[in-house]
Each structure stands twice: as structure tokens, then as C-alpha cells.
Design a protein around this nucleic acid. Structure first.
Lengths: 365, 365
DNA sequence: CGCATATGCAGAAACGTCACTGCATCCCGG
DNA sequence: CCGGGATGCAGTGACGTTTCTGCATATGCG
């Protein structure tokens, strides 16, 4: 009898999968165009029609096909989160806390702007990469001439990196901490706490983080007239850190304070100090760079430098979505973020007055 | 005018974005069908043609449009990873280690079978959920009558849950640990180590994990004829755990061994023990359920029950992809996984030659 | 009253791919 | 020499949206 009945008949032969926009149009007695416009708030439609269509769509449980929409509009609402891989597994456990927090913040930030995150390890099979329609990608710590990044950029897909891009990767923007400033702050803090000779536990790799931090340390030493005391080890090897910590404290010119650039250095140094009968913080001041909440409850609690991965994750995503939506003029953007020094017992000597920022609980912000 | 010439002409006016399948067909002098077949290994084509097409496609940097393929085939190669949210943020920090490890394993497993993972917090705006074409979803610890899950199932999208589905959520499969067995194993282990009265630190919420673990404890108590000694607290509140740990050790019927169901219980109990002057493990045996590597380096190291989130993540993804690809007959599948008890100094009384206890600083805590 | 403009909607062409159908060959046995 | 089955490809819809264009009516204005 009605047009709706007619349409229903014409589709009755098909299997009754999900309702499409056609079904909604038929049920509402309007055209496909009108449904699309009503649901997307476009076109010139009186509110009555809009409401009616919405109501019918709702009743039919209509969900627009994401694939069709993506194909038509060229936007998927998906952004990639590329994480460097060591061996077969994405992200090594030494970066767990940093990555987890960064991903959490990035997810929230993306969601707030209507995007979802896809986890895509850099070493993924190529077919997986090309099988997902990305509006853009975040890459964490891209290596010198990352082929994946280059490929993406060539396809015109915006890429924003966490960490200064090495080589001259053509990323659209990057975010990084102010590593020089961070190191200088720590060294000053240690000196304020009474340190006379500050050592550094650093890495052998040439990534930007290691390089910037180490040169900042060397510059500081030169400025204050201290002989540099440091040990470098391959940071990706978890056992090497313990050995390097031991070597550092075994030296004849043993430092009375140490800053460790990597997450496990705190426990490694603590263990080494114990072996040599050094009390922390009385005989040895300790700071390391880590996001681990557990350092708040070691004996003694260890001061840490937090890179604030949450802030980084948020910033990276904002920049990426800006690039996707064409907000930023399209020129590369660099954003340097401050770090947080969380001062705990391991870097404070009772004798000296409390300095710098007050101890802060790790779960804040 | 040939079809190829026609196409070329019709596309000459457009901006030269990415190469499409048409461009490849034109450049290779074959039809679209042939290109598709050659690249996907279908159809009847001699190897020479196949190679030629592949070579041309490569030269043009052709990448098939994921959106078009998804629309056509009905497969996106994307699976959702839904994580419960507390407040605005996905996953609370008490579940960090578990989630990170689980996600890592799930990502690897998915990738190995050609799928990518999309992080989708359960509380996401509905439009984000419906804007991404998912082949299936993993839900972690779904709540009783999760509307999102119900909606997905209604759309015919496979859902597999990590943790027994509460209520009767119509998931296609689930994976969970054998929590009863785990608790019994721990209690036996503690009893073996000489515990006479074992206490439990548990939660007030009614989720399956808490419920199963607690009843397993109560059953064990009844079997061996011990009066239950436990404190329950709201597990999502980080401070409440410390208070509960304190209460447990303050009781007149103080236990000489405690199992804590939640991640922070180890440090909480350790701190409480210190306050009451109890030595671990001499006066108090300790085990808690956690994935934190840091428990290996506390003073003393604390025995932990690992739920093996990696195994869970892998299993969940395998089950999901099986369901997507129609491998499993389509009937619900349940899979119960064993746990790992990692025995450290905190729960062993015999071999007390664990680590050297450092000279305690009298003024600190 | 007539013309211009606004309003409400419908038609149809994409978006880029895959899969079904079908048309030529070619080969081979009878 | 002919019929039938391989073989190698090309045409042609869909898939389910969005969006551009356009056609009717209403509405305003001189």
C-alpha cells in the first residue's frame, strides 16, 4: 500500500543484515539524500524532518557504514600509534611505564577529538600497514631513516613524532622534552644537596636523548670545573645496566652522586651502592630518569626525572590532528616540553636545607 | 577510443594524488580485473602477467585503498581492544602493568595474523565506536550488562572477553585465569612455609575475580579448619589499600601470612609490617597478585602471583580471530588459563640467605 | 501579478575495490 | 574438421555513503 511497503517488498529477497541508509530512507518515506543530511546536520531541512529521520534511524538501529563513509570522505578517523620494536615484540619492558602512560594520554586526547588509535609496531608486515586507512600517524622515537615513515609521508599522510626526528625525516611536527634543561636542573639540584663529584650513567647508542643528555652533562662539568665521571652501556640490554652501575661505583674517582639516564638505573645503582657499603643518600646521592611509581617506595625512595609522557602523548596527538584537519598552516612544528624532577630521599641530605621543589606524589597529573 | 585511453583522458584533469588500481591497469596495459587478480593471487593468470602487473604497481607506488577494500569485502582487518575506564581515563594505574603486557601480547598475536588493534575505551563517545569498522572486539573485564558489548553483538560482530563475562553477556568466547586454583596454590604454599593463620586482603566490589578468589579462600579455610581473617576495601581507591593493610595487621587475631589480591597490596603490606615492627618473612609471610617487576627488587623481594597477561592477550586474540574467520563452529568457547606463582623471599622461611639487609637509617620512617 | 529568491527535497555521480559473468582464443581428442 | 573444455583476460555491477546539481513549490517584493 504505502511506498514503505513497496520498498520493503523490493528488499525482502535479501538477507536481513544490518539496516542501510536505504532502509532508513524507505522507512521514513524520504530520499537517501535527506537521511544523510538529517543525520549529519547538513543541507536545508526543517527540524521536523530531521527529527523524524533521526527517530526512524534510531528505531531501525541504523549505524552508518564506517567503510563507506571513509571511502567517500577520505577520512577514517583513525590515527596510528607506531612504537619501535626490539626483536619481535613491540616496546621493551624498560619503556613500559613511559609507553603505557603516553598511550593512555594519547588515546584520551584522540578520543576527545573523535579519533581512535591503532597500535602499529614499526616492524609490522607491510600488508598490515597498507591495509588500514590512517588519517595520520604518531611515531615514537623514529630511527634515522625509518622506511615506514618515509613511505607514509610520500603518501601525503601527516606524521608527528615523539622525540626529535633523527636524520632528516620529513615529519610534519615533533614533540620532545627539553633534555638539556632537565640534565642541568638535576646536576644543579645534586650540587645543591652537597655533591662534589657527580657521575653519569649513560648509553652507547647515538639516539638524540642520549646524545643531548650526555653533552649537557659534559658542558655542565666544564662550566663548574669538574672532571666528567661516566660509564656508558648499551641501554637495550637489561643486564648491562647493572654491570655499568657497578663499574661506575668501583672507579678510583668514585662519584658521590650519580644521575642515571635510564629507567632501571635506580635499582641498579642502589644494588651497587649496597655492595660497596655506600649509604644512600649519606654517601651517595641518586637520581634516575624513570616513570616508575615504584621508585617512591624503594628503600630509600629514589628521586626521579619524569618526562611527563602524558603531556607528550597529548601534545603529539593534538599536533597530529591539527595537521590532519589542516589547522596548522602545514609547516613543520617543533614543541619542546619541560620535565619534572621528583625529589625524594635519595638526593637530599638532611644537613642541607630542603631545596628546589617539594616532593610530589607520583600519581598526580 | 580504447577503454584505457578513455580512462587516462578522463583522469588527466584531476590532481595527481595517489595511484589507483585504474592507473596501474592503464600503465600495465591490462584491465582492472587483471590487476586485482594479479595482486591478490586470484583468477587464472600466467606468472608472466602477474609479475608484470606487480612490477608496474610497485613502480607506481600503488597502495590499495583500505577503505574501498573494506567496503567491498566487508573485512577491515581491525579488531577493537576495549578497556574499562575509571572516570575519564582509560585503565587505572593499578592495572598498568597487566594492561601493558596484555596489550603487547595481543598486538603481536593480532599482527601475526594480519590484524591491527584499535584502542577503544568502553566509555568512548558512541560516534567514535560507530565510526570505525571493526571485524571484532576484545573486551577486558566487561561489566554486568555492558551496553557497548550488547550493541556490538546485536550487529553480529564477534566479541571475546578477557575475564568471565558477568551477567549473561552474549560474548562469543572468553578467557580467564583459574582463580580458584591460584588461590589454593598460594595458600598451600604459605602453609608449607610455616604459616599458621593466613589472612586475605580483598576487595568490596562484586566482580568475578574478587568473588572467586574470596570464596576460594573461604573454602580453603573451612577445609583446613582455620578461622578466616580478611579485610575488604574498594580496590579502585589507591589509598584505601594502605588503610586496609594496616587494619589487617592491627587485628588481635593478626595473621602470620597474608595474600593480597591487588597489585599495590605488596608495598602496602610491607609498609604496614614495618610500622608494627614485623619482619618479613620471619614474622609475616607475604604474597600479592601483581605483574610489577619491581617486586623482585623490594626489600625483601615479594612473592607475586602473575596472571600471565601475555598468555591471556594472545589467547583472547586467537579466539577472536577464529570467530571472525569462522574457524570455531560458532558456539561459545571458554578457556581457563593457569597462573604463575613467583616465589621470592617474602614467602619463604627456610632459606633465609636471600639478600643482605642494609644498615637501616634510624631516623627514617 | 510577475519575477526573483528561498526552501525542501530527490537524482545521480562518484569514492576504489573485488567478484561474478562472459567472450574470445587455443588445444586436443575423436 | 569439429565440438568441448581449458586458458587468459575484460566488462560490469555492486559495496554504502556523501555531495553536487537541480527541480519543483513556497515566499517576498515591487
Amino acid at each position: 500500500m504505502t511506498a514503505a511497503g513497496n520498498h520493503q517488498a523490493s528488499r525482502s529477497g535479501r538477507r536481513l543484515e544490518r539496516a542501510g541508509i536505504r532502509d532508513v530512507a524507505a522507512a521514513a518515506g524520504v530520499s537517501i539524500t535527506t537521511v544523510s543530511d538529517a543525520l549529519n546536520g547538513k543541507g536545508r531541512l526543517p527540524d521536523a524532518t530531521r527529527r523524524h529521520v533521526r527517530e526512524v534511524a534510531n528505531r531501525l538501529g541504523y549505524r552508518p557504514s564506517a567503510a563507506a563513509r571513509t571511502l567517500r570522505t577520505g577520512r577514517s578517523g583513525l590515527i596510528g600509534l607506531t612504537v619501535t620494536t626490539y626483536g619481535e615484540e613491540p616496546f621493551t619492558f624498560t619503556e613500559f611505564a613511559y609507553f603505557a602512560e603516553m598511550a593512555r594520554a594519547a588515546t584520551s586526547a584522540a578520543l576527545a577529538r573523535g579519533y581512535a588509535l591503532v597500535i602499529l609496531p614499526a616492524s609490522s608486515r607491510h600488508d598490515v600497514w597498507s591495509n588500514v586507512a590512517l588519517d595520520g600517524t604518531v611515531v615514537i622515537d623514529p630511527s634515522d631513516h625509518d622506511p615506514v615513515v618515509a613511505d607514509l609521508v610520500r603518501q601525503g599522510i601527516p606524521v608527528v613524532s615523539d622525540g626529535r626526528p633523527a636524520g632528516n625525516l620529513p615529519v610534519h611536527a615533533w614533540v620532545d622534552n627539553d633534555h638539556e634543561q632537565a640534565v642541568l636542573g638535576i646536576l644543579d639540584h645534586l650540587a645543591d644537596s652537597g655533591a662534589r663529584r657527580i657521575g653519569l650513567l649513560t648509553g652507547t647508542s647515538t639516539d638524540t636523548y642520549t646524545r643531548l643528555s650526555t653533552t649537557a652533562y659534559l658542558n655542565w662539568c666544564e662550566r663548574v670545573g669538574q672532571e666528567p665521571v661516566y660509564e656508558a652501556y648499551p641501554a637495550h640490554d637489561p643486564c648491562a645496566g647493572a654491570v655499568a652501575a657497578d663499574r661506575l661505583l668501583a672507579r678510583p674517582d668514585r662519584p658521590d652522586a650519580v644521575y642515571g639516564l635510564f629507567d632501571p638505573n635506580g635499582t641498579d645503582l642502589l644494588a651497587a651502592a649496597r655492595r660497596y657499603g655506600l649509604r644512600v643518600p649519606e654517601d651517595l646521592l641518586l637520581v634516575c630518569c624513570s616513570e616508575r611509581a615504584a621508585y617512591a617506595t624503594t628503600e630509600p625512595p629514589i628521586s626521579t626525572l619524569s618526562l611527563k609522557p602524558g603531556r607528550i602523548g597529548t601534545a603529539v596527538v593534538q599536533l597530529l590532528i591539527d595537521a590532519i584537519e589542516g589547522v596548522g598552516a602545514g609547516r613543520p612544528v617543533a614543541q619542546v616540553m619541560p620535565t619534572d624532577l621528583i625529589v625524594r630521599a635519595s638526593s637530599q641530605r638532611r644537613s642541607t636545607r630542603t631545596t628546589v621543589s617539594p616532593p610530589r606524589s607520583p600519581e598526580n597529573d
